[in-house]
């Protein structure tokens, strides 16, 4: 058993359309390293060029924001759930067509 990362629909396309990915690691950072080593494309969508989580994405470890714990250094253990929640602005459920 590892740590389950819940993937929002906006990012599913970068992880083979899965809605959750289970990886192992002892901190949020390690868990995300494991995620992007498996799914490289998700990296630019999650992190900025300085390796910080992008401002429009929140990461919750067991339902609390990691910003208010130790950020990416927050410790995790098997059975924990990490929820990635991006900012969305839609008032209707379709993508704008271009």
């Amino acid at each position: 058993m590892g740590v389950v990362i819940e993937i929002p629909s906006a990012l599913k396309q970068y992880v083979n359309d899965q809605d959750e990915v289970e990886v192992s690691g002892s901190s949020v950072e390690e868990v995300f390293e494991a995620l992007v080593s498996e799914y490289a494309e998700v990296k630019v969508n999650l992190f900025d060029e300085n390796g910080k989580i992008r401002n429009f994405i929140n990461v919750y470890l067991n339902d609390d924001d990691i910003r208010y714990a130790n950020g990416l250094k927050s410790k995790v253990q098997d059975g924990d759930t990490i929820q990635i929640v991006p900012s969305v602005a839609g008032g209707c459920s379709t993508e704008k067509n271009i």
């Binding site: 809605d19 339902d63 609390d64 924001d65 929640v85």
Partner: peptide, 20 residues
């Protein structure tokens, strides 16, 4: 509290939102 609804999984989750 931020309520997250997922129609495909048909679940509701709640995460904490703090004043920054």
């Amino acid at each position: 509290r931020l309520l997250l609804y997922d129609a495909m999984k048909m679940n509701f989750k709640e995460v904490r939102v703090r004043k920054d």
